[in-house]
Design a protein around this nucleic acid. Structure first.
Length: 427
RNA sequence: GGGGAGAUUCCAGAGCGGCCAAAUGGGGCAGACUGUAAAUCUGUUGUCUUACGACUUCGGAGGUUCGAAUCCUCCUCUCCCCA
């Protein structure tokens, strides 16, 4: 046996709870363990990354990770942590999402390393032929309503209401565990702490139905120090897919982690060792404004999830956008560099002829480029000093934008606040 | 099937005939301060207008009224309790 998985998770602050005996099991043999992924989107988000990392550590500790993609459970909808009934996905979309997620998982886990090669399973495979009647006879019979009702995920929804479909979810997921235990020798299910209830329904089913024993281990839900949800930005979810979240934004997401959060993140999302991380923290503490931890974290993850090249491009763009380099530095960029730097920045086209005539700044920001959704908002923002053009503050709402503002005779960099950029291209 | 409560601007939640584009809190956005952090403070948060102001909003459709988010009728939806 290589590293002690439980110990590894513990120092990484990734262990929330586990069924007694889990550690002994893991120390005694190569264990097959699984984590389920919900196919609600065609890409995993950074929130899912915690579970991906858990599987990765699991594998590195010599165990065999299994990723379950929820083709069946995705059709039902997990009520855990949700205050409202979920929308059902149609089947085509589900299939598409599953295929995309599978591809992403393949990037992280090793599917060809002998005894503990990773596996991917889809619960639709064993649910598609399972009739409702068989299900309630073979599965429902073993779990009491009282037991199901006691779950937090159900309790929280009793006031606002939930459908029978969602209520059944825990049984469906519980059966997954049973099936995998029975047919694939899987003894452990892992997941976020919000999954605890669903997971133990599984171990319970295994016990009651076959008198078997299975184990569970959960990771804490990541919360930011300010209490807000992890993995979201103003623009919505942060995805792993570069087409959904550009490398620049992805890099920025991690770079912007607060001091309080970054210590957790670097433990959870990188593979670096304990000593190395502690050394980095000591460095960071000496000069917090250098944000060494954030930079290391952002680099590590961006390189792993995207690529080395994407990382360099993101850093370069960040330096230009946030560095001391002002208007002058921007003007000196060649067209190629400019485009490379702004690859991850939203771009908008504006016709050259309109620029030649000169456009009022408010009209430009709102009607022409859509940076603001209303003129009033654009006007207020300009008056409030929150708008920059080519890194120079604009505070006159009577200002006109014209070809004279173009860099390289083609581009204008508009900026709303400190962090929101839009590159405008004249055509 | 019976009884009750309710649907308000991004959310929560006031308002119960004119003073309501609608209190308050949260969230969002921006400014100051900073380290592209946190905390704090300030501004802003329906649309159009430089502004005065105008216009469209309070589940939906009608109606009463000089005037309705507020009153009446019908409808839709949600929750709770009983069978």
């Amino acid at each position: 046996m290589k590293k002690n998985f439980v110990a590894e998770l513990t120092w990484r602050r990734m262990l929330h709870d586990m069924i007694p005996g889990t550690e002994d099991l893991l120390q005694g043999e190569i264990v097959r363990g699984y984590i389920g992924f919900d196919p609600t989107a065609d890409s995993l988000g950074v929130g899912n990354l915690v579970q991906v990392m858990t599987l990765l550590h699991f594998q590195q500790c010599g165990h065999q990770p299994v990723a379950l993609v929820g083709g069946a459970t995705g059709m039902v909808g997990d009520p855990s942590g949700k205050s409202q009934e979920r929308n059902l996905l149609n089947e085509d979309l589900l299939q598409h999402n599953l295929a995309c997620q599978r591809k992403q998982l393949e990037r992280f886990l090793d599917f060809d390393c002998g005894a503990n090669s990773a596996l991917i399973v889809n619960n639709y495979d064993w649910f598609k032929g399972f009739t409702f009647l068989d299900f309630i006879r073979d599965v429902g019979k073993h779990i009491s309503i009282n037991y199901m009702l006691a779950k937090d995920s159900v309790q929280k929804r009793l006031e606002t209401g939930m459908s029978f479909t969602e209520f059944s979810y825990q049984l469906v997921q519980g059966y997954d565990f049973y099936y995998l235990w029975k047919h694939h020798g899987i003894k452990l299910q892992m997941g976020g702490s919000d999954q605890w209830g669903n997971i133990v329904t599984g171990t319970e089913l295994i016990r009651r139905k076959d008198g078997g024993e299975a184990f569970a281990l959960t990771t804490p839900l990541i919360k930011k120090a300010d209490g807000t949800k992890f993995g979201k930005t103003e623009g919505g979810n942060v995805w792993l897919d570069p087409n959904r979240t550009s490398s620049y934004k992805f890099y920025q997401f991690w770079l912007n982690a607060s001091d309080e959060d970054v210590a957790n993140y670097i433990r959870i999302f990188t593979l670096r060792g304990q000593e190395e991380i502690e050394a980095l923290e000591a460095e960071h503490a000496k000069a917090p404004h250098q944000r060494l931890l954030q930079k290391e974290l952002a680099r590590d993850i961006t390189v792993r999830v995207h690529s080395e090249a994407a990382y360099h491009a993101a850093v370069e763009a960040s330096d230009i956008l946030f560095g001391k380099g002002t208007a002058a530095a921007l003007m000196n960029l060649s067209e190629d560099d400019l485009l490379a730097v702004f690859e991850g920045v939203p771009q908008v086209d504006v016709s050259r002829s309109e620029l030649e005539g000169g456009i009022n700044i408010v009209e430009f920001l709102c009607d022409k480029t859509g940076i603001f959704s209303s003129r009033g908002e654009a006007r207020k923002m300009v008056q409030g000093g929150g708008v920059f053009l080519n890194k120079e503050k604009v505070d006159d709402i009577a200002r006109t934008v014209s070809t004279g503002d173009l860099m390289n005779n083609r581009y204008i960099l508009a900026q709303k606040g400190k962090k929101n950029y839009v590159l405008i291209k004249s055509l």
